[in-house]
Design a protein around this nucleic acid. Structure first.
Lengths: 407, 407
DNA sequence: AGGTATATGTTCCTTGTTTAGACAAAATAC
DNA sequence: GTATTTTGTCTAAACAAGGAACATATACCT
């Protein structure tokens, strides 16, 4: 039951119905390709004539194309299969992280076309942009047979202001109020989109075309690594809030008297479950402060910790179990606040999911208000799926498939 | 940028445009009444002919009516004013609270028609329903000249399952898995709608017709009394979640090692800022456990405490200031999670707003991730506005004005 | 008092979109 | 070789917005 905003409504024009049905048809091709006009008409519950008109419009615009004829099931004419036209078009996804920056080339459906390459992240903004532009141009040259690039999606571990197109604050990079978009757009001559990494991961799950992922209902993506990023999907749309700052559950407290967090406050969820927090627990001292870590801890990662835990290191296991418990307690806040249909969890710690799942689950159950909240679906998104990069790509590819604004 | 759900979409039919524009017109009449057809056409940016057709459709259905002619501004024919037709129709709002239950009669716009009456809440469900039915029938007889009752909206301090039409759990009443709706509908012969009180308060703010309230952007209602209820509005729609359990920020922790909460967990925000928590702080002992409170504390309310604080009682002021601080810290979680355009706060503690506002604000700023989060608008909703009762009424009156589902 | 200008509300025609059904083309079954 | 079935196209009907003309009603001007 949505209220019509008496100041910002959108009247239905003569072409509005067409526009709506066109986007539905496009999305159905995307979801079910290859698909015939007749099947499209059946799915949409309209006459074949209407589907045919919608299809010819999409064909004219080059959004879809006619492929080979399909096999007839019983008797009758063979269907002509339709596909999203991703030939001669590609998208570049960029994932900026504290230590390294990753690049991937995909088609419009988000299917991976290149290997994921990476380079060291220069924390100097101008230097970084030069590096990035060189790398992106190189990738486009290496794969130039794939065709024109529709856009570049860039994901950063920090707050992004969409209205002013600025990275407001990315503590891991030491960036404040940085305009990446306009300089990059100028240097590359391709549209560039910037977004926060947690939000982008949620977008990646929303726009994924894998048939086993059901998109309906609200969902939340929680990314646990150096920080904790979250993105919330409500009604098929990313929850952005007034300043694109919504979804920061990483800084909802577990205990306001808890350990100091990178954000300046104390006891944030992030301060309990981030990789640094987990490692700090293992080493018995706060690693977040020491910039160049000492030799023992410098190259030691959460993956290493998990390996030790699996090998029988009781201290390692205890550190991981603590993180698991705090993870579940924090997820309970998300469940109580949003009551999502499912939660996606990504990050290094998920490689130990078989070890930690029962602990996460019981901690979740401990603090959720309802029984069904305690059994909320939790899906692990492995690093190999590159959720951040797929989210970066979705920034570019998704708008063409979005529902028109109406009423 | 909303994704079209490839399984639950809605195709635009021949009548869809009309349906959309009809609802827009209806909402504009509601928001701007009295209004002429010509003004409606100007607001909607359509020809007067279209507006005229939409209006005559709404007239035929009896949703609006033509009133007196307005005054011509300059020269020219005088406009015929249109109004929402709330003559001969009314709505009953019911607010069930732990000690007393309140009833109010309104028109379809939510304008108060009767005084607010109340009776003691019988915690026995059957006995309560008998009481309620008698009272509702009496009100409808007392005001029978107003006309037929369109429905009864009931608000309860607990979790409500909309799919199964049940009150799942209302701790303050001791109710579990109670079906109020069907028996009441049968006994009254009028449609009955049930909803959680925090969610209803949010609906009341969303659907209010006061011109000074801007509805755009996301907003959150926080109701602080025996418990803490919250309702979240996203894109003009109440955030319900999978089981209508979303928005329970009252049970997001401030400190997981904090005081025990009525929900069974520890350190929930509610356990810090509820009226009982505030009073417990003043009296220096936990009042939540003692069912019949001792003589000193039995009839002592937060209002009394505020009166003492204003009179110079340092202990009372300290208790209130503590609550204020915890209130702000909890609001910070909401701001970090939802980044709303504004927060509405209701409850007894708000009568001390002038005392506590600076403390709430500074606590909020302390834990919000961004500077703009710290200055999020906070609006106090005084008890005289009866947010719960207006929300109950909105349950009945709002659906007629809701946007049609599209795409 | 009468004419002119202007605003409101209705009516008619045009354009574009869904709905419904007929029809040709293509493939299989008998 | 004929009948049947499926796909895709085409045509007409119903209906909604877009646009303009027209009747009605009021105020201003001479």
């Amino acid at each position: 039951m949505r209220k019509i905003n008496p100041h910002g409504f959108k009247v239905a024009r003569r072409g509005t119905s067409r526009e709506i049905n066109r986007q539905i048809a496009l999305n159905l091709v995307r979801a079910h390709q290859p698909i015939s006009r007749a099947d499209l008409a059946r799915l949409m519950n309209v006459r074949r004539g209407v589907a045919s008109l919608l299809v010819s419009e999409l064909l004219d615009e080059g959004l879809i194309f006619e492929g080979a004829l399909g096999e007839a099931v019983g008797r009758g004419r063979r269907p002509t299969f339709l596909y999203i036209d991703s030939r001669q078009r590609c998208v570049v996804g960029v994932d900026i992280r504290a230590s390294r920056t990753y690049i991937m080339l995909t088609d419009l459906m988000g299917r991976q076309l290149s290997m994921v390459s990476s380079f060291q992240t220069n924390h100097d903004v101008d230097g970084f942009m030069q590096d990035l532009v060189r790398r992106v141009k190189q990738v486009l040259i290496d794969y130039k047979e794939i065709g024109a690039c529709e856009g570049v999606g860039v994901v950063v571990p920090g707050m992004v202001d969409l209205a002013a197109d600025r990275v407001l604050h990315a503590p891991a990079l030491g960036w404040r109020d940085v305009n990446l978009r306009d300089p990059l757009t100028n240097l590359l001559g391709i549209p560039v989109h910037i977004e926060n990494s947690g939000k982008a991961c949620a977008l990646a799950q929303l726009w994924t075309t894998r048939s086993d992922v059901i998109a309906s209902g609200n969902s939340v993506f929680v990314s646990v690594s150096d920080g904790v990023g979250t993105g919330i999907i409500v009604n098929g749309e990313l929850l952005r809030g007034r300043h694109n700052a919504a979804g920061e559950f990483g800084h909802v407290p577990l205990s306001i008297d808890g350990p100091r967090c990178a954000c300046g406050a104390t006891g944030c969820w992030e301060a309990y479950v981030s990789n640094i927090a987990t490692l700090s627990r293992y080493f018995g001292r706060d690693l977040s402060e020491q910039k160049p870590r000492d030799t023992e801890t410098a190259a030691f990662t959460v993956e290493d910790l998990i390996a030790r835990a699996r090998a029988g290191d009781a201290k390692a296991l205890a550190a991981i179990n603590s993180t698991a418990r705090y993870l579940g307690l924090g997820l309970a806040s998300i469940v109580n606040a949003v009551d999502p249909a499912r939660i996606y969890v990504g990050g290094e710690i998920t490689t130990a999911w078989s070890l930690i799942e029962p602990i996460v689950r019981s901690a979740l159950r401990e603090r959720t208000l309802t029984e069904f909240g305690g059994v909320t679906e939790i899906h692990v998104v492995p690093a190999e799926e590159h959720p951040r990069l797929r989210g970066a790509v979705a920034l570019v590819a998704a708008p063409a498939f979005a529902a028109p604004m109406v009423a």
